[in-house]
Amino acid sequence: MAYNVLIVDDSATMRALIRKVLTISGFDLGECHEGANGREALEILENEWIDLVLSDIHMPEMDGIALVNAIRQNHLWENIPVVLITTEGRQEILAPLLEKGVQGYIRKPFRPEEIKRKLQSILGEAWVPHDRELEGCDF
């Protein structure tokens, strides 16, 4: 099964990096959509079939916390796995988001293998590894 992924981050460079990590890590990537903030992410969710959301927290206009709230309050989206990829490391901010049903978080800075490991643990058997080794990739 190929996953349609929505990457939400106000940095185009970080979105490109995450997309690249997904591609080379063996993740079965279908369509990959990108939004620069929560508002853009919601517009994409309205119009596209999304299987997984990878979102930053600190973004202008609409941050990741508001985005998580909106996703979890919409019955069409409430079961979409959400993983935060964020510079935020303070538990008092992260813990309430985990309670709201965020599946996990990856702290920036991260190693590419961490994204793979986290998604494997969340998606379980749905993860389809292609056995492309991360070692030797030109990161």
Binding site: S11, A12, T13, M14, H58, T86, T87, E88, G89, R90, E92, R107, K108, P109
Partner: peptide, 21 residues
């Protein structure tokens, strides 16, 4: 964009290490 992202990550890691409220 890359240097901004580096600043962003350093600031985030710094706040976490400081355990800033």
């Amino acid at each position: 964009d890359v240097v901004k992202e580096a600043a962003n990550m350093i600031a985030g890691a710094f706040l976490s290490r400081e355990q800033a409220p």
